[in-house]
Nucleic acid binder design. Structure first.
Lengths: 235, 235
DNA sequence: TCCTACGATTGGTCGGACCAGTCTACGGGA
DNA sequence: TCCCGTAGACTGGTCCGACCAATCGTAGGA
């Protein structure tokens, strides 16, 4: 799928903004200027600017022009582009992402344990059993853990929370689409999964939260390493 | 500021989608059809659709048409429109928002206490002192607490976290722009602020987290009530 | 020196044209 | 009768040019 003309233009402008080549408050070239410099039609340029405005990267005012906004006021959706900016990716940003993801999922666990119905508890226990039995490849484990996180955010019965997690997850998947091969310690995993399982049965929110946190941290270091070495983007 | 033509169209379509008048996977009318039914030009319709696509509410395929996507896969940015959908607002959604906001800010506190420099600790203590001294109106208290949350997310040195919080905050401000009048118990507030202050001095992350949580919950119940009764939207 | 007013610049909307994928329904072949 | 390929209708993508409306900058006047 070849990117559309507006996408190309939007991407170029976006990268310039994210790289700080336009300071906050600074004015972008006019639509007509951008049209001539990019060789595209003004409609296409306009569409690109609308996208950037939707990302809250710029503010467009009739007669005024398009001005760059402060980065931290932008939409969460720019994060994926921030991650795409460097190759290999900015590991600091990846670490920050992992911290927030952990925060959100463990927060969801607290709510989920209290609110989940029996069906959901059962589903979660099945997933945990698959992790515990030790016969999965590391890629499969990651998949199961992802399913588990999905189930948790669903059971938390909090749409806002679910959307935040989905946004974070989509962000990561978009940037690192390949399945990764990591090495987990089967014994440690089985132990943690068992602890989470017990917490679920007893509906012990704090224990479940702690267990899920340990689960998420189990493969974290290697994940960061793998991501950092991943090299070329599959564009 | 009168909304632009594309904004009107986008809003109408968005509301229809959020209200479930289009099921996920269903196809929207063609750009040309929408143009005739709305009385606008196809360019304006197109711009509206681009915005919805950017919100990940729809997926546009060349030759294919625009199809509705599942709501929980959409951008966090649709939440503000979800909140705007009802008046008075959906209190369940407001509660969910408050839960997530609390989660994010308290999570930020943990990081912030460890990473803040002396300057930031000092600034935070000044804000806490203003809360504690009891001579502020409730609106001012809310303002100070917001500054405090801002400072915390800054000190957490986590851009992802900061953007999530800013997104949540912008969402709330956009929906409830009026300053609210709440009643806090000065004594309780002073006590909590003092606890947080001590935690900051001792760099005790857990105590700070707990204190900030209590601070955020102090006015919560009344905030929900006030928001629920707020009535007309200042559109 | 300050302010006003006008003209240039910029975004907003329109209409139409043509290209490039996608979808569908018709008709031919098995 | 059923399946399948294809032609044509349909849909989004891009371009062009025109005009309106808000803003901005500056030259000229008070």
């Amino acid at each position: 799928m070849t990117p559309s003309r507006p996408d190309e233009i939007a991407r170029a402008l976006r990268d310039d903004i994210l790289r700080g080549r336009y300071a906050p408050g600074e004015r972008l070239p006019s639509e007509r200027d951008l049209a001539t410099t990019t060789g595209a039609n003004r409609s296409s340029v306009r569409e690109a600017l609308v996208k950037l405005e939707q990302l809250r990267l710029i503010e467009i005012r009739r007669g005024g022009g398009a001005r760059v906004r402060p980065l931290d006021r932008a939409s969460l959706d720019v994060l994926v582009h921030l991650l795409e900016l460097e190759d290999p990716p900015d590991l600091v940003l990846v670490e920050q992402w992992l911290d927030v993801h952990e925060l959100v999922v463990t927060g969801a666990v607290r709510l989920a344990v209290e609110r989940a119905d029996e069906q959901q508890i059962g589903d979660a226990r099945l997933l945990l059993a698959r992790i515990a039995n030790g016969h999965l490849s590391s890629a499969e484990i990651l998949g199961v853990m992802d399913e588990l996180a999905e189930l948790i955010s669903l059971a938390s019965r909090n749409l806002v929370l679910r959307m935040v997690r989905n946004a974070l997850r989509a962000l990561f998947d978009q940037r690192f689409p390949e399945r990764r091969e990591l090495q987990f310690s089967p014994r440690a995993l089985a132990e943690i999964a068992g602890a989470v399982d017990r917490a679920l049965v007893e509906r012990d929110a704090l224990a479940a939260e702690e267990g899920v946190r340990r689960l998420m941290r189990a493969g974290r270091e290697r994940l960061v390493k793998s991501v950092g070495a991943s090299g070329a983007l599959p564009r």
